Computed example of a mutant assay.
Amino acid sequence: TQSDEISLLFHYRDESFNRKERKILSILAGEASAKFSVMHGQMATFDARVCVLPNSQLVDDYFRWRQEDAHRNALNAHCYWMLRKSGHAVGAATEQVKGLNRQEKHDLLFSQQINFNELPAWQKRGTGVYWKDVEKTGLNPKTGETTQTTRRQLVADFDLPLNEFYSEFIRQNFF
């Protein structure tokens, strides 16, 4: 996730909605819109799109691109809102940020004692939510013996790795 965008990766063997793209689109857009609206007390709408990525390299490329997009959008947003809070009008703040390269944006923030590099990772490159297999210890009620089992657990990851480490993370966790 980043900003108002959510990218989902379905396992290639997942058969949700019989893999019907139109059904997946309508359900996901509806669920995201409903949940966000309820949580924030005002109506919100989300759209959706499906990208069929036929191999793991394209999946890696896609998620790496989304992470870079998150970083670029976060840097722009931090600059814009810093200018707005310091009294700049919407148009003036937009125009000032629009012409700056990455380093100039960092410098602009730093001029107001904001070090973008020190912000939490989730603010700069989004968050990940994914299933992870975890070992659970249980008790067999009939025999009283301790048992081990594997369960899937949702993990919210607020510190996703960068660059080639992100590619490795994707390969290890999703393929």
Score class of each variant (00 low, 15 high):
residue 1 T to P: 11
residue 3 S to Q: 12
residue 3 S to V: 06
residue 5 E to C: 03
residue 6 I to K: 00
residue 8 L to V: 15
residue 8 L to P: 02
residue 8 L to C: 12
residue 9 L to Q: 03
residue 10 F to S: 03
residue 12 Y to D: 11
residue 13 R to P: 02
residue 14 D to G: 11
residue 14 D to Y: 09
residue 15 E to N: 15
residue 15 E to L: 12
residue 17 F to L: 14
residue 19 R to T: 00
residue 20 K to L: 10
residue 20 K to Y: 06
residue 20 K to E: 13
residue 21 E to M: 04
residue 21 E to P: 06
residue 22 R to S: 14
residue 23 K to F: 07
residue 23 K to C: 03
residue 24 I to S: 04
residue 26 S to R: 12
residue 27 I to C: 05
residue 28 L to Q: 09
residue 31 E to S: 08
residue 35 K to D: 08
residue 36 F to G: 03
residue 40 H to N: 15
residue 43 M to Q: 13
residue 43 M to N: 14
residue 46 F to K: 01
residue 51 C to L: 14
residue 52 V to G: 02
residue 53 L to Q: 05
residue 54 P to T: 13
residue 57 Q to H: 12
residue 59 V to Y: 04
residue 59 V to A: 03
residue 60 D to A: 11
residue 61 D to W: 10
residue 63 F to G: 09
residue 63 F to P: 08
residue 63 F to W: 08
residue 63 F to D: 06
residue 65 W to L: 09
residue 66 R to T: 01
residue 67 Q to R: 02
residue 68 E to Q: 15
residue 69 D to L: 07
residue 71 H to W: 14
residue 71 H to V: 07
residue 75 L to V: 05
residue 76 N to T: 10
residue 77 A to G: 10
residue 81 W to D: 14
residue 83 L to N: 09
residue 83 L to Q: 09
residue 84 R to D: 01
residue 85 K to P: 00
residue 86 S to N: 11
residue 86 S to Q: 11
residue 87 G to L: 02
residue 89 A to D: 11
residue 89 A to Y: 06
residue 90 V to K: 10
residue 90 V to W: 11
residue 90 V to D: 08
residue 91 G to H: 10
residue 91 G to M: 09
residue 92 A to I: 00
residue 93 A to F: 08
residue 95 E to V: 03
residue 95 E to T: 05
residue 99 G to E: 02
residue 100 L to K: 00
residue 102 R to W: 13
residue 102 R to K: 15
residue 104 E to H: 03
residue 105 K to E: 02
residue 107 D to E: 13
residue 107 D to V: 05
residue 109 L to E: 08
residue 110 F to E: 10
residue 110 F to P: 00
residue 111 S to I: 00
residue 112 Q to C: 07
residue 114 I to H: 01
residue 115 N to K: 02
residue 116 F to D: 00
residue 118 E to P: 01
residue 119 L to P: 02
residue 120 P to N: 07
residue 124 K to F: 00
residue 124 K to D: 02
residue 127 T to A: 10
residue 129 V to P: 00
residue 129 V to C: 13
residue 129 V to M: 10
residue 129 V to L: 08
residue 130 Y to E: 07
residue 130 Y to P: 03
residue 132 K to G: 01
residue 133 D to E: 14
residue 133 D to W: 04
residue 133 D to M: 09
residue 134 V to C: 00
residue 135 E to S: 10
residue 136 K to W: 09
residue 138 G to A: 03
residue 139 L to M: 12
residue 139 L to A: 04
residue 139 L to I: 05
residue 140 N to G: 10
residue 140 N to S: 11
residue 141 P to W: 02
residue 143 T to A: 04
residue 144 G to E: 04
residue 144 G to H: 06
residue 145 E to Q: 13
residue 146 T to I: 05
residue 149 T to F: 08
residue 149 T to R: 03
residue 152 R to I: 10
residue 154 L to D: 03
residue 155 V to R: 13
residue 155 V to F: 09
residue 155 V to C: 12
residue 157 D to R: 05
residue 157 D to F: 08
residue 157 D to L: 09
residue 159 D to S: 14
residue 160 L to N: 05
residue 160 L to C: 07
residue 163 N to M: 01
residue 166 Y to V: 07
residue 167 S to T: 15
residue 168 E to D: 15
residue 169 F to K: 11
residue 169 F to V: 04
residue 171 R to C: 00
residue 173 N to K: 02
residue 173 N to L: 01
residue 173 N to M: 01
residue 174 F to I: 08
residue 175 F to S: 15
